[in-house]
């Protein structure tokens, strides 16, 4: 994001830092900023630059600490993005409402509403795929949803993102979790030794009269996931 602001906006596009521009990153990486004023969004953009440039200093650490409060938290999925896949049907998310796939009330800590959308792949695809900003700009942090829809589903795949990536609940294990990566990739190796016929190789050997110690290694790698590997 630092590079987007200091290289993308400033040098390549010659465009000022505005809320609309920074939301091209933050709509997924810090969606609460959607509710910030233009001025506050600008300040957040400056903080991102400070956190990166001044990393290790008090100023940089302070900026980091403030920015950490904007991380993707409960509200990002359970309110801000909850109704977006079917905005026409559901409308804007209700203030303070927590949407969940089964409508459990969270011990009366907050009002809740059942919304099956949160258990659908299309919900995750809001951010885990090609992103189209409000002005039409295409941002491509990752392209995962493309291979999910056009290869996995097209070949008959029926699992959703949540089926695999919520096995450990809200830890959302993926590429950062070695167990999950191991589960998604299969490796089979066949090693076949043999003696190659003397005098039949271009490669020079010490004794051309002798059988040449040789081996064939066959490796089979299986992608058991519902998307291309690697991707994000």
């Amino acid at each position: 994001m630092h590079n987007f602001i200091t290289i993308g906006l400033k040098k390549e596009w010659n465009t000022p830092l505005t809320k609309a521009q920074i939301m091209k990153c933050l709509d997924c990486h810090a969606p609460t900023v959607a509710y910030a004023t233009e001025e506050l969004a600008f300040e957040i953009g400056k903080m991102i630059v400070t956190a990166y440039k001044m990393d290790g200093t008090k100023e940089g650490n302070d900026a980091k600490k403030e920015l950490a409060r904007l991380n993707v938290g409960c509200l990002a999925c359970h309110n801000i993005k909850a109704t977006a896949v079917a905005r026409g049907l559901h409308g804007d998310p209700g203030p303070g409402m927590i949407y969940g796939p089964n409508g459990e009330d969270g011990d009366n800590a907050h009002p809740s509403e059942e919304l099956v959308d949160l258990s659908r792949a299309s919900f995750c695809m809001q951010c885990h795929g090609k992103y189209k900003a409000a002005d039409g700009e295409i941002i491509q942090c990752n392209t995962l949803s493309g291979s999910f829809q056009n290869t996995y589903v097209a070949q008959g795949g029926s699992q959703s993102c949540q089926d695999c990536h919520m096995k450990k609940g809200h830890l959302f294990p993926g590429g950062h979790d070695l167990d999950t990566v191991k589960e998604g990739l299969g490796l089979q190796v066949e090693i076949v030794p043999y003696g190659h016929l003397p005098g039949t190789l271009e490669k020079k050997v010490k004794d051309p009269q002798k059988w040449i110690p040789s081996a064939v290694v066959n490796v089979f790698i299986e992608n058991k996931t519902g998307h291309r590997i690697p991707d994000g």
């Binding site: 996995y152 040449i212 110690p213 040789s214 064939v216 992608n223």
Partner: peptide, 21 residues
């Protein structure tokens, strides 16, 4: 990348020297 539901096969042929045991 490696596509979903795809199993890819890679083959490696190695010839060593005649004194390799």
């Amino acid at each position: 990348t490696l596509q979903p539901m795809e199993t890819i096969k890679e083959r490696f042929l190695m010839n060593f020297d005649t004194d390799i045991e």
